[in-house]
Design a protein around this nucleic acid. Structure first.
Lengths: 237, 237
DNA sequence: CAGTGGTCTAGACCACGTA
DNA sequence: ACGTGGTCTAGACCACTGA
């Protein structure tokens, strides 16, 4: 049996996206949901907290939980999500081409590393194409100490899927840093950009749940195709 | 008396930033914290959930809560935060210049509005200067129906402060959309950029807690000064 | 094995919005 | 006055880690 609040979350998302609970209507109250799902109110509240975090609802004290006009195309570059998952989620006709696959150390300068840290890794450069247009170049450095070998087939498919399903590794957390930088000549050539175009660089460091470093990533996005949407709440804290 | 979990959160943040709990050490266990603060474990867990969300800690089942190397300079463009708050938080020598202040309708095209929606507003254009350099142009449309009048003094100071402290309005939630666009001539002139430079546009819509629309915003950031850092967790959900 | 965090319960009281 | 969500409690059982 999986987690109750997760089950409730998924069922509520389903009902919202299928307009059982239409936009601008209120969900049943927390007490009603607790009764309906045969659970306690705190558990219902955990499900609602996830809906809140993902921008599905807005809670108004004394009134209820209002269904928001959720943007289906909000691109979750935010969370730790892989292209394969995005591809399944939306119908985007994504295509992946492995450009490079070799052993290399993680470049210290790119990731603010101490110059004494030598981190042997597998370097994978991949081009993401959406509807025939080159959009993103992903460069991944996967630490050899954690994942000794990566085949071309795995690189072509999905690293995260390989890590989690085949190797049983558990992805924990990471940081991402967005900046706008001028494209290199190589990047211009691959993404079919005019020289000196600006691109969006998303650099990330990924850790496993046990805090082991596993991966360094830099994604170079075509600036004109880059969009990042976020839902924010006013925090008292 | 304020909220217990908020008090605990703040005290833990303080102890982390002051290295009472140094980076790479573990916090006291949830049971210990509950005893120490004379509260229940679930309340401690709410405080820890906030630390988790803000990237201060990483929890490892069976081990404890690990203190992460928190990036003090992660710019929270993310949440709904105002410049005045940022200015207080960091010591940035921010300066604000009011460029324009007039009545105008919210431009429908810019914010994906229906062309039948006429929304009278106060238009405020402000330049944000950090350490003497022009960095951001903020354009705000504040709906006249919610806030009839905005003085130059308020625009110079802080809109959020005025809304919340003077008018008693409660900010609820909003969406933000990040894109990279070519700068207009006017923007190049104000930000001292060479023609056809790229800038980062952050468009946002803000609602009150009772769901009333209050404000449309577009911030134009100099691309070379723009950095957005985010902490992400792998979600099972 | 003992200790940790993850989930869950069945209550309680409060602040807020509506009528 | 009533129903809503916000906070809080004092338990419970589970899965995981490490000795």
């Amino acid at each position: 049996m999986s987690k109750k609040y997760e089950t409730i979350y998924r069922e509520l998302v389903h009902k919202i996206t299928n307009q059982v609970y239409p936009v601008n209507s209120f969900l049943p109250s927390e007490n009603e949901l607790a009764t309906a799902y045969g659970t306690s109110r705190e558990t219902v509240r955990k499900a609602l907290a996830s809906l809140l975090e993902n921008g599905f609802i807005h809670k108004i004290k004394g009134k209820g939980s209002l269904v928001l006009d959720f943007d289906k195309y909000a691109f979750p570059i935010s969370g730790l999500t892989s292209y394969r998952e995005l591809d399944n989620l939306f119908d985007m006709h994504t295509q992946t081409t492995v450009l490079q696959l070799k052993k290399a150390n993680v470049p210290q300068a790119s990731f603010h590393l101490d110059s004494t840290e030598i981190l042997p890794a597998t370097y994978i450069q991949r081009l993401r194409t959406v509807n025939g247009e080159p959009i993103v170049i992903d460069s991944d450095y996967v630490l050899t100490s954690v994942v000794p070998e990566i085949s071309r087939a795995v690189a072509q498919d999905s690293l995260y899927h390989y890590f989690e399903q085949e190797l049983g590794l558990k992805i924990g957390y990471g940081n991402k840093e967005f900046t706008v930088v001028p494209a290199t000549e190589e990047q211009c050539a691959i993404l079919k950009l005019t020289p000196n175009s600006a691109v969006v660089s998303v650099k990330g460091i990924t850790h496993l749940q046990d805090n082991t470093l596993i991966q360094f990533t830099e994604s170079i996005h075509r600036a004109d195709k880059f969009k990042f949407i976020e839902h924010a709440r006013r925090q008292s804290i």
